[in-house]
Design a protein around this nucleic acid. Structure first.
Length: 427
RNA sequence: GGGUCGGUAGACAAAAUGGUAAAGUCGGCAGGUUGUGGCCCUGUCAUCUGCGGGUUCGAGUCCCGCCCGUCCCUCCA
């Protein structure tokens, strides 16, 4: 095939190659362990949904909906979208399947690819992998504390140290309205000093002004009124309780009143875990409360809180801190034959060992003993099983421990039991 | 979507001021070495500079378009 006709992975996507894939497995295993210890159950939803689901829940003024969503029509003209985030599908499924029936609280986790049409760069892809949890059915600040504790356990469980938890309360719709008014009043005095984006933000979403990176806007934002001063009594109380729970749990955090989560459905608690090892302060994970979303999407009035994080960014952060991802899988035993005349016997021994659950490689292509032996060493196997003329004639197999340089011969029909024992010891 | 820098073998990578492109390291394969250790030695592995076009006697180099990556904005995970 000529070079120009080579089909490559689409922009912003990539293959997780065999020498990397164990890292994904390591992280999702760890995530599932933490989920199990907090008693969350897995919910798997489709990778595409009705486009409306996201337009209504995420908010049609957001970048995600305005320009990042993979939206398409299927052959019957249905408007669908590749999911750009995980919460809306979980909520849709929760309502549709009536998951509250018989159980007032649902604790769900998910893990899988998400899609956003962004400009790709490191830690930002068009197909990326996200894990997340949703704690549905309670407005109690204990739930907020638990979701944050989960996030903290996940980070520390993976060995990460250079991260920071930031929390905030963005209040309920009432406080938010008051606060927006205050912000508009404040910023209107400086309209002509604001960047063009922020001039629009005053009208559409004044809170977004707070995390504008343009220096002028930034210094104006520093002196802007704080959300925390506009919380009503109940929201204030909720936030105080959360902080007190986190203090009791010994979870370190800082209050950052400028956290504004990007999606419209959030209220009250918002939090992020920031990677402080990388210069660009990218969020490793983010979450918050969304007490109105379920009713908004047609369910009963049900409070909820959740969090989600990106696996690519976790891997990048772990690599920066030189953390282990477990080991790349290796065979237990590498079976080699002396020459072609014993290849069939070697194949049979291999089959027998594999059937017993051992990880076994069988050298097919190379015929020289020396080459096979070197291949065995390179594979990382702990043992090699040798089947040559002598073994064939005496119905035995030579087993060599490649670490200890010891070897001995065993009867062919005992080999499975013996190797089961030896390999168990080695794990 | 705006801007930056970049793209040379399977991987990494050197050199070429518009004038014969490709050293080196790793890796693969074969042999040295037909039953025993990662070493070592030898051979071998690109009709070719991301793709397409232009200028030129001559383009990896200059120009235009596109693709991909990178970083900064925007934004997010």
């Amino acid at each position: 095939m000529s070079k120009q006709k080579m089909i490559k992975a689409p922009r912003g996507t990539y293959d997780i190659l065999p020498d990397q894939s164990y890292k994904w497995a390591w992280i999702s295993d760890k995530f599932k362990q933490v989920a199990a210890s907090f008693n969350y159950l897995e919910l798997v939803t489709p990778i595409f949904e009705s486009a409306q689901l996201f337009e209504r829940s995420v908010g049609d003024q957001t970048d995600i909906i305005e320009k990042e969503m993979y939206k398409f029509k299927d052959r019957k003209g249905r408007l669908l979208a590749l999911r750009p985030e995980g919460t809306a599908p979980v909520v849709r499924s929760y309502i549709e399947n009536n998951l509250r029936a018989g159980n007032s609280i649902s604790k769900l986790f998910y893990n899988g690819p998400m899609f956003r049409y962004d400009r790709p760069q490191k830690g930002r892809y068009r197909q990326f992998y996200q894990y997340g949890i949703e704690y549905i059915g309670t407005a109690d600040p204990f739930a907020d504390a638990e979701v944050i504790l989960f996030s903290d356990y996940l980070m520390s469980g993976l060995g990460l140290e250079k991260y920071r938890l930031e929390i905030n309360s963005i209040g309920c719709s009432l406080c938010s309205e008051q606060y927006n008014k205050a912000l508009v009043t404040y910023f209107q005095r400086y309209t002509d000093q604001l960047c063009s984006d922020c001039q629009k933000r005053i009208k559409n979403n004044p809170k977004r002004l707070l995390d504008c990176k343009v220096p002028n806007c930034k210094s104006l934002a520093d002196n802007a009124p704080s959300m925390l001063d506009y919380l009503d009594e109940k929201c204030q109380e909720h936030f105080e309780q959360l902080k007190s729970h986190l203090d009791s749990l010994d979870v370190d955090y800082i209050v950052n009143p400028k956290i504004v989560r990007g999606l419209d459905y959030y209220n009250r608690t918002a939090f992020e875990i920031i990677d402080i090892a990388t210069e660009a302060q990218t969020a490793l994970l983010g979450g918050g409360r969304y007490d109105n979303l379920i009713e908004f999407l047609g369910g009963k009035d049900t409070p909820a809180i959740g969090m989600a994080g990106g696996i690519e960014r976790l891997i990048a952060a772990m690599e920066k801190e030189n953390l282990p991802f477990g080991e790349q899988p290796k065979p237990d035993i590498y079976v080699i034959n002396n020459d072609i005349s014993t290849k069939k016997e070697a194949m049979l021994v291999t089959a027998k060992l594999r059937k017993n659950g051992l990880k076994v490689e069988f050298e097919i292509e190379k015929n020289s003993f020396n080459k096979q032996f070197k291949a065995a060493l390179k594979s990382g196997a702990n043992f090699t099983a040798i089947i040559g003329e002598d073994e064939k004639n005496t119905d035995t197999v030579t087993i060599k421990n490649l670490r200890k340089e010891e070897q001995s011969r065993y009867k062919n029909d005992e080999i499975v039991a013996i190797m089961n024992e030896k390999c168990k010891k080695h794990r």
